[in-house]
Design a protein around this nucleic acid. Structure first.
Length: 448
RNA sequence: GUCCCGUUCGUCUAGUGGUUUAGGACACCGCCCUUUCACGGCGGCAACACGGGUUCAAAUCCCGUACGGGACGCCA
């Protein structure tokens, strides 16, 4: 007997890991780590039709990318024996009953109820089937699907996010637990695994709230202890409507491809919708330390990509060269060194901007020269190599004395000639990175 | 359609009937720093969805409306 916190994240491998899903995953994980608990990654792949291994791989990649890990991993596909065993037990308890309606018939029933302005809840017709009727269906070769018989009693729990939640059993349809082909469905597998793996807390999206009502009765039916539940609101888009995939690249894989730092994603997702300020974090351990599930609100937070990029910029501005070295290499900037990185770091918004400054230093650059004589004059005054950190000052001082230019009149033409741009990193540092050859070439540049 | 949830500055939120000229963070704007941009420092702007009610007193309690979300699958 121990009180160790045990939590799982249970995605179904039926699509790419979406930012909304990643948020739930991350919060679940942070809660576990903040409580020194055990984290289980459970692949809910009972839907053989839609589950794909490539998605399972993408999920693991995505989670790993944002810094998550897991103490254990399981796959529902591999646990069919256990489910079948529990199914038999449930049948013996009389909590499972066979139904012979076809999907079309059920659909018709729902539509009919809806048109009478009634909630489309299953009418339990199969419950009153006689043994003869069932035998007749079986004789005709009809295979039943099986529903869990809910008790029509109040269901209540204290949700860690939503507070006290109440349901009436009669407001819910008896959930189908077994398909016509005999395979178990989500509700069954999920509850069994939650029991078998000793989950103490179930943290998931609020799309599961009414499922929880059913699940609580299933936990009871199995004689298991009921875990603590927490249902997080789903994210909405900037405008406050449903987060849709149309709105652009919102899968973890896409965000990664965009060159975002995973800590930007973590920083935003760990704080969005909570009363703690959204701030850039350099490492996930600090996020764990400050994590508090009770600070999350019931309201639907808006997800704004711009906010993610802002955080990304701030995080980038604090990364040391060793931390970005590999990622720069991935961008083809394997020749960039620490000195270069330090010079351009304050001027980049995204890591990919580094490529632009590399180009500015190494060329090709189209210099902007409005006064050719001035540029040539400046070139004549260039100090002899080797250059060092004082060279810029020496040079501009000489140019100033010689030409009488000062301030913006002095510096802007030099910047434009050297970089072809009117903004950028400190020229003193840039000068060294561009190098004598390029500097001379650019100062002598003439169009055509 | 039915049930459930939500709605406080642009955004995330604090606030559980009087302590509130509604607080913070980010964004935005301004100033300073900087012989560019960025970084940094300082300051400013800015909100209780709407309508009723309860109360001496309401962002806070109740009812309704609007808007948004969720659920109502032999998906998870």
């Amino acid at each position: 007997m121990n009180n160790e916190v045990k939590v799982r994240f249970a995605p179904s491998p039926t699509g790419m890991m979406h930012i909304g899903n990643a948020r739930t995953a991350l919060i679940t994980w942070l809660f576990t780590r903040a409580n020194n608990g055990r984290f289980l990654l459970r692949i809910d792949d009972t839907d053989q039709e839609r589950s794909k291994q490539e998605y399972e791989i993408a999920i693991e990649e995505g989670l790993t990318w944002i810094g998550m890990d897991w103490d254990e991993k399981t796959r529902q596909k591999d646990r069919m024996d256990i489910y079948n065993e529990k199914i038999e037990w449930l049948k013996e308890q009389g909590r499972l009953y066979p139904c012979y309606e076809t999907p079309e018939e059920l659909d018709l029933k729902r539509k009919s109820l809806l048109s009478r302005k009634l909630p489309p809840i299953y009418d339990r017709e199969a419950l009153s089937l006689t043994d003869e009727q069932k035998a007749s269906f079986d004789a005709q070769g009809s295979k039943p699907h099986w529903r869990f018989k809910l008790e029509h009693e109040p269901i209540e729990w204290n949700d860690l996010v939503r507070g006290p939640v109440k349901f009436r059993g009669s407001d819910l349809s008896d959930p189908v637990l077994i398909r016509e082909d005999g395979t178990p469905l989500y509700h069954l597998c999920s509850v069994i695994d939650d029991i078998e793996y000793g989950m103490t807390h179930i943290i998931r999206g609020e799309d599961h709230v009414s499922n929880t009502a059913c699940h609580i009765q299933m936990f009871k039916a199995f004689g298991a202890q009921i875990p603590t539940f927490a249902h997080l609101p789903l994210l909405s888009d900037k405008e406050g409507s449903k987060l849709s995939k149309r709105h652009g690249s919102l899968s973890l894989r896409d965000l990664r491809k965009e060159g975002l730092d995973p800590m930007a994603v973590v920083s935003l997702m760990a704080r969005l919708g909570s009363s703690d300020p959204i701030e850039p974090f350099a490492n996930i351990e600090d996020v764990v330390k400050s994590f508090d599930l009770s600070k999350f609100s019931r309201a639907t937070p808006k997800f704004d990509l711009d906010e993610l990029y802002r955080l990304n910029t701030k995080i980038l501005h604090n990364l040391s060269f060793t931390e970005v070295k590999d990622r720069l290499a991935e961008l083809g900037l394997d020749k960039m060194d620490g000195e270069f990185w330090l010079a351009i770091q304050p001027n980049i918004k995204r890591l990919t901007d580094a490529k632009e400054w590399w180009r500015v230093a190494k060329g090709p650059v189209t210099p902007i020269i409005e006064d050719r004589n001035f540029a040539l004059q400046a070139m004549e005054l260039l100090p002899a190599t080797p250059w060092d950190e004082n060279t810029w000052q020496e040079w501009t001082k000489a140019v100033k004395e010689q030409t009488g230019r000062k301030g913006k009149q002095l510096f802007m033409p030099l910047r434009q000639a050297l970089t072809g741009m009117d903004h950028g990193p400190e020229l003193g540092q840039l000068l060294l990175l561009i190098g004598e050859e390029n500097v001379k070439k650019r100062l002598q540049y003439s169009p055509e």
